[in-house]
Design a protein around this nucleic acid. Structure first.
Length: 423
RNA sequence: GGAGAGGUGCCUGAGUGGCCGAAAGGAACGGUUUGCUAAACCGUCGUACGGGUUAAACUGUACCGAGGGUUCGAAUCCCUCCCUCUCCGCCA
């Protein structure tokens, strides 16, 4: 969440930036400031009374020790009065604090200066495009047909085991998943990321930390009996590793990576564009997360973009990079680049990675700080990106590399897959 | 799942009702000393939100796993929950 002190000091700027994001409830800012004023007033009042109460309690102790019982009893009456006068203030204070917090949770992150204004995906800016769209044989078919032809993924059985959108990978289809995961992880480790295998379920506090709650409640699978959520991305457990920590400045940047399955309910997305692997409820993804010094976060964002680019290039998949406009960006992001690969048989761009800088939006919730040179605690900036989400990569690999008789994987995968051809 | 023990600051660990935001030791940081390293010595060494100030100084409140309760007063007593450890059971 945003920092209240920042909103207080830069109210006008905050309003302007939220407008770039097409934020629908600008009146929340005004409410927030009013609530904060009220909070301060109540806090001051209750603390002053509490202070008096505390000193009186100490005096009673001293009087008792000296055996001056009557005086002590008189003081006790005094304390009782103070206590009854403080109670309504404390109650009111907690109500206001709750409102304040709830309001703050409803305000999205501020877009950075480089974020274009806009309302919908049409307003995203294509930064660059790489690679040549392949010319496919006349017999070329979309990946869901290739999957059948080569018996790589069995959607029907997956649906029978669980439900639609839970693919059952099989044979070389399963092996390809494993090869890609291994390849992506090795690549990230090579760039200095520490590998983790985190829990795949998280508790409520963790889901709040990265901002999945309360904003995206309906998108996560919820295990109500235990109060857990299935992770929609490794970002959630990874970033929360450092929740409530104060790092040393020298420990930055913290670079992490993890493979995890990801679970998404994607409510309301049924219908279009959901065939085959285009959109599923359970998918595999390798994620990178960084905690960095505020000064370098935008530099790191660009580095992460290049990092993902090189990975896509090694897979020889044509891609383009979008600078997401304010209206299309996620709630918690200050700036996001989306990566889309070209799916030749569908003639479509499919999103395979999203690289974002959250600045202090997440770290403020999670209280991830570092001690700066002056000994002051500052919030770190958090960033993350996919490198990469598998299903659509698989879809493109299959489609773009199909020949009349087989599918030819790019050389980068050979040592991971064990041979050149995928049949 | 059953039985027991326990959760205190960066770490170890003392503290069983007021003198405790918390002893002591270690680590870390700054300094003195020193041919270098080591050692020794001195100092600093929690967080959040307020008040105050140009900024400090200074100051208030809260926090000893979380939430309630008892009490004039709670790290300390009571209740609930969470977590960790040991043993047993079950199980990949």
């Amino acid at each position: 969440m945003l920092q209240l002190s920042y909103i207080r000091q830069n109210t006008e700027l905050v309003r302007q930036k939220l407008a770039i994001r097409n934020f629908k409830e600008p009146e929340l800012i005004e409410q927030l400031l009013q609530l904060d004023d009220e909070r301060k007033k109540l806090q001051l009042e209750s603390e002053q009374t509490q202070s008096k109460l505390n000193t009186t309690a100490k005096e009673i102790g001293q009087l008792m020790a000296k055996g001056r019982k009557d005086e002590a009893e008189a003081k006790k009456v005094e304390v009782a009065t103070l206590k009854s006068s403080i109670q309504p203030i404390v109650d009111q204070l907690s109500v206001v604090e709750k409102q304040l917090n709830d309001t703050l949770l409803k305000i999205p992150n501020l877009p950075s200066d480089k974020v274009p204004a806009g309302k919908s995906p049409e307003d995203n800016i294509v930064m660059r495009e790489w690679g040549k769209k392949p010319s496919l044989p006349a017999t070329a078919v979309p990946h869901w047909e290739l999957i059948k032809k080569y018996d790589l993924v069995d959607f029907e059985t997956g649906a029978r085991i669980t439900g639609s959108g839970f693919p059952l990978y099989k044979g070389k289809g399963a092996k390809l998943q494993r090869a890609l995961i291994q390849y992506f992880l090795d690549y990230n480790i090579g760039a200095g990321h520490t590998e983790y295998i985190p829990p795949y379920m998280v508790n409520e506090a963790t889901a709040y930390g990265t901002g999945q709650l309360p904003d995206k409640e309906g998108q996560m699978y919820h295990i109500t009996e235990d109060g857990f959520y299935l992770i929609p991305t490794a970002e959630v457990p990874l970033t929360n590793i450092y929740r409530d920590e104060v790092l040393k400045e020298a420990e930055l940047p913290v670079k992490m990576t993890a493979y995890t399955p990801c679970f998404r309910r994607e409510a309301g997305s049924f219908g279009k564009d959901v065939r085959g692997l285009n959109r599923v409820h359970q998918f595999d993804k390798v994620e990178i997360v960084q905690l960095v010094h505020p000064q370098s976060s935008y530099e790191v964002l660009e580095e992460m973009v290049v990092h993902v680019e090189k990975l896509l290039q090694s897979l020889e998949l044509p891609y383009r990079i979008l600078n997401l406009c304010g209206g299309d960006m996620g709630f918690t992001s200050a700036m996001t680049y989306d990566f889309e690969v070209y799916s030749a048989a569908q003639d479509k761009w499919l999103e395979v990675s999203s690289v974002s800088n959250f600045e202090t939006y997440q770290s403020n919730r999670m209280k991830i700080r570092f001690k700066d040179a002056n000994g002051k605690n500052q919030l770190v900036h958090t960033l993350n990106g996919s490198s990469l989400a598998l299903p659509r990569i698989v879809a493109c690999l299959l489609e773009n590399n199909q020949t009349e008789k087989n599918i030819q994987l790019p050389p980068a995968l050979h040592s991971y897959f064990g041979n050149v051809l995928l049949i």
